[in-house]
Simulated assay, not measured.
Amino acid sequence: MRAIQQTQSDPAFLLDAADDHAPEVKFHFVLKNIPFDENYLPAANTRMTTNFANLARGSGRQENLRNTLTMIDNRFNTLVSWDNPTRDRYSVALDIISVELVADAEGRSDAFPLIETLKTTIIDRSTDARIDGIVGHNLSSYVRDYDFSVVLPSYNKDRAEFSAPENFGELHGNLFKCFLNCEAFKTQFKKPPVICLSASTSKTYRRTDNQHPILGVEYQQDGFSATDEYFAKMGLKVRYFMPPQSVAPLAFYCAGDLLRDYTDLELISTISTMETFQRIYRPEIYNANSPAGRLYQPSLKHQDYSLTRIVYDRDERSRLAVEQGKFAEEYLIKPYGTILEHWSAKHAY
């Protein structure tokens, strides 16, 4: 079993107080690498709606995890068609990158779980080589839950037309970009992250003539979704691709150049990991029995799909998002929100 590793960021950075009478608060990031394997148990402060955490619960947790990891390996080997005649040359090892925001003020230190994401390592069984994959894939964020499950409902409570506050997502985006610029991230990861999510059920996607040998055929959306706009404030641009043998496009959010900055094996590690999660959580879209056409709108009401053997509770995930948003409000926004918002307004990355 791989051990948990911990890395602290560069020396604490000062976030200016909102006024001259407010106490000085210093923040820094702490990174923990936690193996995601069949023995994984979510920590007490893990966001439980996260794909990998939701699977690791209940009496069948080990079977869930084992089957999920097998699906990832099988999908990876299917996409690596060269020098892999038996389709079992590679395995994908996953680590959860857990990021805490630690606040030091007046002799007290508070740690808040800010981000959890994944890092892949590709294991070549024929050579015993371990090849770095991509960091990103999944993105878990309590602050995102706060924005979408607390801020938005409150803001729209008495409004005739649904909208978002002008600065919606800016604090989350600046904290994310600040983390990417810290020395701990730059030392541990050589390339910017790629986040891979489901296509939005509120948008229509049109197939283009652009086709990538690994990512597959590109789709373009008819407008930016709320998630697209939220991730843009994190410095991430979105492109939609439907990989070979897939049935629906995936959303790839990237700060760099998705098609040029990453190797084939790195991209395949993202596809195999996140398509597996989506087949489990959104089988109506990603385990459908027929592929997306030239004009495509995803729907969770689609009936012609197959289920995996992996058990999860989608209703529980929706309910927990509200609880987790309130957790962020109680332990981060209320004690430090004014200082963080003041800092966010003054700093752009």
Rank of each mutant, 00 (worst) to 15 (best):
Y142I: 14
K157S: 07
A184H: 09
A164F: 00
A103V: 13
T187W: 00
F148S: 15
F168H: 15
L139Q: 07
R130V: 07
N174Y: 10
A103Q: 10
A160L: 09
D104C: 14
G133N: 07
F189P: 06
P113Y: 05
D104M: 14
L118Q: 04
R108T: 06
E170K: 14
D147S: 10
P153S: 04
F179E: 08
C178Q: 15
G136A: 01
D128S: 13
R144K: 04
I115R: 10
K157H: 08
I134Y: 03
A129M: 13
T121R: 09
H172M: 09
D132S: 13
N181L: 10
L139A: 02
E166F: 04
T121D: 11
A111L: 04
G133P: 09
N138F: 00
T121P: 03
L139I: 11
N167G: 05
T120M: 12
E166W: 00
R144S: 04
E166I: 03
I122L: 06
A129P: 03
C178G: 02
E170W: 08
A164E: 00
I115V: 13
K190E: 13
K186Q: 14
K157F: 06
Y146C: 02
D124H: 01
C178A: 05
D158C: 12
K119V: 02
N174D: 08
I131E: 11
F162L: 11
G136T: 02
E116Y: 03
S149N: 00
F148A: 15
D145M: 14
Y146N: 01
T127L: 15
E161T: 06
L171F: 06
K177E: 00
K177R: 15
H137G: 09
T120I: 12
Y146P: 02
D110K: 11
T120Q: 13
S141H: 03
